[in-house]
Design a protein around this nucleic acid. Structure first.
Length: 581
RNA sequence: GCGCCCGUAGCUCAACUGGAUAGAGCAUCAGCCUUCUAAGCUGAGGGUUAGAGGUUCGAGUCCUCUCGGGCGCGCCA
């Protein structure tokens, strides 16, 4: 509907001689918006005010010139100038009726344009280290990423979802020795898990699943280390244990235990996410970058471009040449490559796989990292704008007004799985995305669980269920629902509430567009709340199952369309639409 | 110290990226079930958009400063 107005404005503007030198394609697109208040009509344009100055016109005069050039169309009832120079469009009733019929006809495709846009997007999210179960913070990333992916799809983008598995580096070794210590523990009760190790119970479960025999001399060495001086520095201490474990077990056996532990956790994460309705097209292993020589390749390419130099025994990348605030180490003094080096290789690889636009969803604490990854990407010959980063703020969990602690290392955090079991997937998905991702989220467990008007997810689902119930009642009362009669009699829907619902339904395509472009799923959640509100209000105000066949079918058609949009919208959010509650 | 983000009703948050009278929910108060699900509806009160300047037809939104909060500034990941 909005595009109809945009097109009319475009046609009109082309005919205004004063404006021709300023026009481009985008201008009309951005110059038409929904009005906040229906007394201003349905759509409004500020174009006359924006161009009053450069064309040396009075805005209201310019507006009247433009209006005269806008072609007549039966969707538009009236165009008028208001206030300082707004051009307000009042849509005809037929325009809304046409939209309602369209919703009924194309059902859950309404407002969605699969394949409409060119360009492939790689959406990377969660990417939590596979060293333990997901916690409630990861849940927000999962919900946000999955929903954003759905919305981008609906808006016509081709999107692939990817999870980057950080299966390389020291964290994995720490995970491995944590498991080994749990294995040894059964015969050596004096062993204590190092402070830098992983304390969670899931480590014990992994340990029990591993039947590798481990030489007891390792226990003795660990016991010695445990009581020795270097137990003071927890990082040094655990590195010493890693060292000994690798020597005594041999690198091969160590790798087997590491791989088994990793796979076990990764599988658990995948299962957890699947249950949450969050799926990925690919799981990309950090290790594979080194194994397939991508990291070497990157380093030699950077060297060829003379973007590397040696200092203090390490190799540095001239990130400052690409708008980063300082240069960054790619290869340490100990010859190991940094995490950052993997990341250049990884992002370069994404581009090589044919993705035009890369979206990373990261925790807000990673914001300092964006500039350097982008620098790496540009150094590899890509555009800075190819990489987009969406930051997600932290989640605080509240129970009965008390903030819950979330200490990761101690293993005392609340997992995503626990949260889902407690409040249910639907409430969890909705609560995670109902607030802007740029805002800290206070997640109130009691509120999420409450099956009352305090809980917005039930409020929306209830509207859907109520409509289903009305249709059941219709059948019980032996009335027939005639879709065609409904369409033919939409003009009988003349109350304020009915017109408001029609207007809101017709906004759905704009909401998808808006939340896709702004990467803002919460706009959709907000919209669905508004729509549910308007329906509940209508429900209390009018009876749908009435004797008059024409009015009855028209009203049933309208609530059917409402139900369709609620279902379609909730589906994008990953929330179910129950038929009864 | 430097950089990024944030500050909107008692609380939790919106506000279509510069538009018209800043909106919801919770909480508070007052009403609505012998008729389609009361997990609902109707109404009331509640604001100097942290503060001060500036830009312009027009600012919660853009710029500058101040105050307050979060995060980041490793050869960690």
């Amino acid at each position: 509907m909005k595009t109809d107005i945009i097109n009319l404005v475009k046609l009109g503007l082309q005919e205004v001689p004063e404006l021709t030198e300023f026009l481009d394609d985008q201008i009309a697109e951005n110059a038409v918006e929904r009005t906040k208040d229906l007394v201003h009509g349905d759509f409004s344009s500020n174009i006359a005010m924006r161009f009053a100055k450069v064309t040396k016109n009075n805005p209201r005069d310019l507006a009247s010139i433009i209006i005269k050039k806008i072609p007549k169309n039966n969707l538009v009832k009236k165009i008028e100038i208001a206030g300082p120079g707004f051009i307000n469009f009042h849509m005809s009733d037929a325009a809304f009726h046409q939209e309602i019929s369209k919703i009924i006809d194309i059902d859950d495709l309404y407002g969605k344009h699969p394949g409409k846009r060119k360009g492939k997007i790689l959406l990377e999210f969660v990417s939590a280290n596979p060293t333990g179960p997901l916690h409630v913070g990861h849940g927000r990333h999962a919900a946000y990423g999955a929903t954003l992916g759905n919305i981008l799809n609906a808006a016509g983008y081709e999107v692939k979802r990817e999870y980057y598995v950080n299966d390389a580096g020291r964290q994995m070794d720490i995970l491995c020795v944590s498991v080994i210590i749990r294995i040894l523990e059964s015969n050596n009760p004096d062993l204590i898990m190092p402070a830098a190790g992983y304390l969670g119970d899931y480590i014990k479960i992994i340990a029990e699943s591993i039947d590798e025999k481990i030489d007891n001399t390792l226990s003795e060495i660990i016991l010695q280390l445990q009581n020795g001086d270097n137990a003071q520095d927890k990082e040094q201490y655990i590195d010493a244990i890693i060292q000994s474990a690798k020597e005594i077990l041999g690198i091969e056996k160590f790798s087997v235990i590491k791989q088994t532990s990793l796979e076990s956790i990764r599988f658990d994460i995948e299962e957890d996410l699947n249950e949450f309705g969050v799926t990925f097209d690919s799981w990309f292993s950090e290790n594979s970058l080194a194994e397939q020589g991508h990291i070497k390749k990157i380093l030699s390419l950077l060297k060829d471009k003379e973007l590397l130099y040696k200092k203090d025994g390490a190799i540095w990348f001239k990130a400052t040449d690409f708008d980063d605030e300082k240069d960054r180490v790619v290869t340490r003094e100990n010859k190991n490559n940094t995490y950052f080096t993997s990341d250049i290789a990884y992002h370069h690889n994404k581009k090589l796989r044919g993705f035009d636009h890369l979206i990373d969803i990261l925790g807000s604490d990673h914001h300092g990292y964006i500039a350097r990854v982008r620098a790496g990407l540009v150094a590899m010959g890509h555009q800075a704008s190819d990489l987009e980063v969406e930051l997600v703020q932290f989640v605080s969990l509240f129970r009965a007004g008390e903030k819950q602690s979330m200490s990761t290392r101690s293993g005392e955090f609340i997992t995503l799985r626990q949260l889902r079991e407690e409040v249910g997937n639907d409430a969890a998905r909705f609560f995670y995305i109902m607030r802007s991702n740029e805002q800290h989220l206070d997640f109130d467990l009691e509120l999420a669980k409450s099956k009352s008007n305090e809980n917005p997810v039930y409020y929306i689902q209830y509207a859907h269920a109520r409509i289903a119930s009305v249709f059941r009642q219709l059948e019980e009362k032996r009335f027939l629902y005639d879709e065609q009669k409904g369409k033919d009699n939409l003009s009988l829907l003349i109350t304020k509430k009915e017109k408001l619902i029609m207007s809101t339904l017709s906004r759905f395509p704009e909401i998808i567009e808006l939340s896709a472009n702004n990467r803002a799923p919460h706009n959709l959640a907000q919209y669905l709340r508004d729509l549910a509100n308007e329906f509940h209000s209508y429900y209390n105000d009018s009876i749908f199952i009435v004797e008059d066949e024409k009015i009855r079918n028209a009203r049933m058609l309208l609530i059917k369309a409402t139900q369709t949009i609620i279902k379609s919208g909730l589906e994008l959010l990953g929330v179910s639409s129950p038929k009864s509650m």
